[in-house]
């Protein structure tokens, strides 16, 4: 975990650039969504304060949860370096997860806080009064990191079977923009679509921790659902890794 933290803190210049990009998009999204509160129509689901928290929290969490990127492992599989990883005396999935959590910790400090500060400076944001909610948010964000890791872990593992995972990876990026609640809160979709979206793992990456923070819906129910999803995707990843190892042994790497 520590190694992950140290490795990623080397890229400070990249972090600064990333923060600027995230903030530009934050400004634009805040402006488009603010139109929901002007004129005759009023949005019933979020207050303006909650909406601005939603936007800036989303821009910050985006790099913590890592919605885009994170396909290095597939490259290790493609080049065959994975054999080394597999024969080390460690649990590969756990080791990669630990590194991922280290990376997320770094991102929390360098990529999450700056957009939040910008958001606080430019707009009135909803902040929970109850310290318990802050704690629950942290747990929820951690679960999001684990779910995001597990989903990408499986797509990366697909490299054992596919020559090139670019297809699935770009599909994932495409879908996640809309389904995680990054560009629009999930509650803005029509009812049937909402039900369908919450049945996928995607909203648990972003919408769930945000809703925990802005206290939209019951935080306990959201956390419970997230725990369930975490268990499923971690388990599925484990199963897939076992199949991949088997395949490697049979084919002799």
């Amino acid at each position: 975990m520590r190694a992950g933290f140290r490795r990623y803190s080397a890229y400070r210049q990249a972090a600064l650039a990333g923060v600027i990009t995230n903030s530009v998009f934050g400004l634009i999204r805040a402006a488009t969504l603010a139109t929901l509160f002007t004129g005759a129509t009023r949005s019933s689901e979020y207050t303006p304060q909650q909406m601005s928290t939603y936007v800036w929290l989303g821009q910050g969490l985006l790099s913590v949860v890592l919605l885009w990127g994170g396909w290095d492992f597939a490259e290790r599989i493609r080049t065959g370096h994975v054999a080394v990883d597999l024969y080390r005396p460690w649990d590969l999935q756990a080791a990669l997860l630990a590194e991922e959590i280290g990376r997320a910790g770094y991102a929390l400090a360098l990529r999450f806080l700056p957009p939040m500060i910008i958001g606080l400076a430019l707009s009135e944001m909803y902040l929970p009064r109850d310290p318990l909610i802050w704690l629950l948010f942290l747990i929820s964000a951690l679960l999001s990191v684990v779910i995001s890791f597990s989903l990408r872990f499986m797509i990366n593992l697909a490299a054992f079977w596919l020559l090139d995972i670019r297809g699935p990876a770009s599909m994932y990026a495409l879908v996640s923009n809309l389904l995680t609640g990054l560009v629009l809160p999930i509650w803005m979709f029509p009812g049937w679509a909402q039900t369908a979206i919450w049945a996928t793992p995607f909203p648990y990456l972003l919408q769930a921790p945000i809703d925990v923070f802005v206290e939209h819906g019951s935080p306990w129910r959201l956390l419970g659902a997230q725990l369930l999803v975490t268990a499923i995707v971690l388990g599925a990843g484990r199963l897939m890794l076992r199949r991949a190892e088997h395949r490697l042994v049979v084919q002799g790497g």
């Binding site: 488009t32 129509t41 803005m188």
Partner: peptide, 27 residues
């Protein structure tokens, strides 16, 4: 696949605009 992916990426934004306008009349 790549072409479609790029096109879908672009069209997602149209979905966003459409959804926004289910709740507002003017932007």
């Amino acid at each position: 696949f790549e072409i479609t992916g790029q096109a879908i990426g672009q069209l997602t934004e149209v979905v966003v605009i459409a959804l926004l306008f289910t709740r507002i009349r003017s932007m």
